[in-house]
Design a binder for these strands. Structure first.
Lengths: 149, 149
DNA sequence: TTGCAAAGTTAGGCACAGCTAACTATATTA
DNA sequence: TAATATAGTTAGCTGTGCCTAACTTTGCAA
């Protein structure tokens, strides 16, 4: 039941979707997950079985879907990575929210702990630096405009 | 022959490996590609057939492997993305070369043109800014040390 | 020049992740 | 409460990308 193997990108996406639905107050349902991930319902069922086998969700056919403690932790880890990346894209690079969101969905599977931790620090540092030293991000935005980006 | 479909991550990796071997002066050989990508030779053969079908390499069984003009362009596009990402990780975030290299290999498939272009600009801007205004990257490195990163 | 080791290929298999079509369970509402 | 629409599942197929084992080709050395 409690297989502790690295999750595939795909299964991380399912876990993330379930987490986000739960957070939104809703009970996660196959239909909603399918819609979020843009896949067929049948594909969701397959993924739910795998997540259940790994002990990350509680799931019976036709029943409600709940994250287990272990599933919650893994989901939070994915979401944390996602947020760090998205925040960097938006707040430092000045990328629009939607593009940043999409890019973060992909990149969250690609970046390991060292890079994630640095990225997080860099975004934090930026706000700190701007308040206390110099507004290099405004300067960067000006630089982008100058280059027509 | 000249199928113009998006390359999979895997095929982009093979193309990149062939490009890097060619640049290193060597003729790309299956064995070397297998070693770089950490896969079996049989897997390389399969990939070479696909790249050949798409008109990206010139390839006959047991023969030498050469990038076509089209293949060269696609390879350069991948390598360019890779370099932008790696350079940002090393020069801005201060991540060690090896970790940066590995992370860039993954991220190069995940980041689209908008983010890549901003990232490139940000790294350029950083060097410019440091020379002319303020050394915020040194300050960032200090900040990391302070936080024990 | 032949004969063996290394390189490369082929065949066949597996896991993953998606799909459609057909079926079953659940929920709504007339 | 019975009929029906919606949600969810199952079965079976596809494509990708890897593997091993067995084979072929190539190139080098005796």
């Amino acid at each position: 039941m409690a297989e502790t193997k690295q999750l595939s990108e795909s299964l991380e996406d399912y876990l993330e979707a379930i987490y986000n639905l739960s957070r939104a107050g809703k009970v996660a349902r196959s239909r909603d997950i399918a819609q979020i991930l843009d896949v067929a319902c049948a594909s969701v069922t397959g993924a739910l079985k795998l997540l259940s086998q790994r002990g990350l969700i509680d799931y019976e056919p036709y029943g409600n879907i709940y994250l287990t403690e272990k599933g919650l932790q893994q989901a939070q880890s994915v979401v944390r990575r996602h947020n760090i990346i998205e925040s960097f894209f938006v707040n430092v690079l000045g990328v629009d929210k939607k593009t940043a969101q999409q890019a973060a969905c992909k990149a969250e599977h690609a970046l390991g702990p060292i890079v994630i931790s640095r990225l997080s620090s860099f975004t934090d540092f930026s706000s700190y630096y701007i308040e206390n030293e110099s507004d290099f991000i405004s300067d960067f935005q000006k630089y982008c405009r100058l280059k027509g980006l």
